[in-house]
């Protein structure tokens, strides 16, 4: 079953002795539902990765970094997880994120999605959906509302959207939310 988009799966492992870019590896690309599952079932669950590792799923042709021309004007919907959620919910939330992407779940605004990233960190894991243009308010908000609903987050949980341009100049925790849902 062909997908609308060809996707690329990336992996990175934090090695402070090397440049960030050198730690980033393209795992594989796929463009069918069957190949997605073959890959997903073959690789480690996110919760089994060691701290400092990331997975990223991006549209073919977009690198998972702010500097890519398709990302640099964009931003991300960020889901910050408490430590105990790695055990309980992390894998479910990441799989749901992947299914949102490959299933083109954001209607016409799916074209504004660039990819998604999961960061495994001791201080708390993070999952984010990256979109192309932070100023496209209607699309960003639609994606955020659908995404929050698909993750099954309660209405009390607030997730924020940060422009990469803001995140790049501040530490992650200080970047201000441009939108919230």
């Amino acid at each position: 079953h062909p997908l609308l988009t060809r996707w690329a799966l990336w992996f990175s492992k934090n090695d402070r002795t090397r440049a960030w870019r050198d730690n980033l590896h393209l795992v594989t690309k796929f463009d069918t539902v069957e190949d997605f599952w073959a890959i997903y079932n073959h690789i480690k669950l996110a919760s089994k990765l060691s701290s400092g590792c990331d997975y990223a799923l991006f549209k073919d042709g977009i690198e998972p970094m702010w500097e890519d021309s398709k990302n640099k004007r964009g931003g991300r919907w960020l889901v910050s997880l408490a430590k105990q959620q790695r055990h309980m919910e992390l894998d479910r939330l990441w799989l749901e994120t992947l299914l949102c992407l490959i299933g083109e779940s954001f209607a016409d605004y799916s074209q504004d999605v660039c990819g998604a990233v999961i960061n495994i960190r001791t201080k708390g894991d993070k999952i984010a959906v990256w979109t192309r243009e932070a100023e496209e308010q209607a699309g960003v908000l639609h994606i955020g509302r659908v995404y929050k609903d698909r993750l099954g987050l309660s209405t009390k949980t607030i997730i924020g959207y940060q422009a990469h341009a803001d995140t790049a100049t501040k530490s992650n925790s200080l970047a201000k939310n441009k939108f919230v849902v």
Binding site: H1, P2, L3, L4, V33, E34, F36, W37, N41, L99, I102, G103, E104, S105, R150
Partner: peptide, 18 residues
């Protein structure tokens, strides 16, 4: 062309099909 969209249910069903 035709948009190829799969809902969550279909994607999950594909996980276990041969």
């Amino acid at each position: 062309g035709t948009r190829i969209i799969y809902d969550r249910k279909f994607l999950m069903e594909c996980r276990n099909s041969p």
